[in-house]
């Protein structure tokens, strides 16, 4: 039953997986809440590990959530589920020599899809900010320090153009220094 739920979730997600992995967080989150697979905190950790690993973030998250909920078989089922739509769609497009990127209907679709993908990512950021108490009015050492870490992380990514993987690793070291 768990395996079937995993398969269903990631198979359907595979068909709408536009715009890089982070846009898929709301879809995964909806399934995590619906089936009660894990806490939001644990879910955030899964996304962090997915972001630290090589490979597509959506597939990595699917594998990690599969592993958490149903062990190795869960990981395999989730990986297959997310790959099958890609396989099917790519072979279809390739077999019919469809020049999708110059097709006017597809271009119009993307005109609406791209802003929606932006909304999905903003929504994911909001959800995670709420879950990790970034949006609150409690003034404590923990709160102020996390806001500073958030600001510095964003600065490193936007202005210094650091690779996200390095930012995560450095942030982990800061966490060990501050909170242990």
């Amino acid at each position: 039953m768990v395996l079937w739920n995993l398969f269903q979730t990631f198979f359907i997600m595979g068909f709408v997986s536009f715009g890089g992995g982070y846009a898929m967080i709301p879809i995964i989150e909806a399934a995590v809440t619906k089936y009660g697979w894990m806490s939001t905190e644990q879910f955030t950790d899964m996304i962090a590990i997915a972001g630290m690993s090589p490979g597509p973030i959506a597939a990595n998250s699917a594998i990690l959530i599969g592993y958490t909920t149903a062990g190795l078989s869960g990981a395999i089922v989730s990986a297959v589920a997310i790959l099958l739509p890609s396989l099917f769609l790519v072979i279809t497009a390739a077999s019919f020599f469809i020049k999708l990127h110059h097709n006017p209907v597809v271009e119009r679709m993307f005109y609406g899809l791209k802003p929606i993908v932006t909304s999905l990512i903003i929504f994911a950021a909001l959800k995670f900010a709420l879950a990790n108490n970034l949006i609150t009015f409690q003034v404590s050492f923990r709160y102020i320090s996390t806001v500073i870490i958030f600001g510095l992380s964003l600065f490193a990514l936007l202005k210094l153009q650091w690779n996200p993987v390095y930012v995560i690793i450095l942030s982990g070291l800061v966490g060990i220094t501050l909170y242990s």
């Binding site: 950790d45 995670f128 996390t146 990514l157 942030s171 501050l178």
Partner: peptide
């Protein structure tokens, strides 16, 4: 302790992606 900080950085990474 590391993950307390990493979770916040993930929010920053998602904002950056947006």
């Amino acid at each position: 302790a590391a993950f307390i900080s990493i979770r916040v950085t993930i929010v920053a990474i998602i904002v950056y992606a947006a």
